[in-house]
């Protein structure tokens, strides 16, 4: 899957998984910070994103300390998926 296509898909999935009803997927910037500032997600959202990656992409994230790096933005998640899918 191309990176651009993956990013758009991820935005849709994030909005659905986290029930961000007031957010339109296209409004989320590729490099926008998801946690704390930016989209303002919190630690429960991070755990929901772990489930999302496992359910939709078959990727497991076991060490929660990796979370902040991987889940920094839509781009970092997309890159993580592409790198690990190849491997």
């Amino acid at each position: 899957m191309e990176l651009e296509e993956l990013k758009q898909k991820l935005k849709q999935q994030i909005v659905t998984q986290l029930k961000l009803n007031e957010v339109k997927p296209e409004e989320i910037g590729d490099d926008e910070q998801l946690f704390g500032k930016g989209l303002g997600l919190d630690s429960i959202d991070a755990l929901e994103l772990v489930v999302l990656l496992e359910e939709e992409y078959g990727l497991k994230i076991n060490h929660s300390e990796d979370g902040p790096k991987i889940f920094y933005s839509v781009s970092t998640i997309a890159n993580f998926i592409l790198e690990n899918k190849k491997a």
């Binding site: 429960i44 755990l47 929901e48 489930v51 496992e54 359910e55």
Partner: peptide, 10 residues
């Protein structure tokens, strides 16, 4: 017991 969402448990 796989891929469970934390929110309903919490």
């Amino acid at each position: 017991e796989e891929t469970l969402n934390p929110t309903p448990f919490i």
